[in-house]
Amino acid sequence: MISRVDASATSAAFLVQTDVVNWILLQEGSDITLIDGGYPGQESDVVESIRHIGGRPEDIRGALLTHAHVDHLGGLVGLSQRYGFDVYMDPVEVSHARRDHLQQAGPTDILPLAYQPRVLRWLAKVTPLGVLSRKGIADAKPFPEPLDLPGRPIPVSAHGHTDGHSAYLVAAGEVLVSGDALVSGHPISKIAGPQCISDAFQHDTETARRTVESFMMLESSVLFPGHGPRCDGSVAQAASRALDVS
Rank of each mutant, 00 (worst) to 15 (best):
L129E: 13
T205E: 04
H52Y: 14
W122S: 08
P150C: 08
T127P: 03
I154Q: 12
S234T: 13
V177H: 04
L102G: 03
L243F: 08
L34Q: 02
G160V: 06
R61N: 02
A12S: 15
A105F: 07
Q202M: 15
G84Q: 07
P153Q: 01
T18G: 11
L64R: 01
R56F: 12
S184T: 15
D59R: 02
L147S: 00
D59Y: 09
L147T: 01
Y83V: 06
A192I: 14
D45N: 06
P40E: 02
M217Y: 10
A158V: 07
K141N: 08
H52I: 09
V222W: 03
L15H: 06
F224R: 02
V235D: 01
D204I: 14
A171H: 03
S220K: 06
S157D: 14
L102C: 02
I35W: 04
I2L: 15
S30E: 12
D86P: 08
D163G: 14
P57R: 01
F215P: 01
P225C: 07
L15N: 02
S133C: 05
H52T: 13
L176K: 07
A9V: 13
E219W: 08
T127E: 11
V92F: 00
R230C: 05
G75F: 06
D204F: 07
S30V: 10
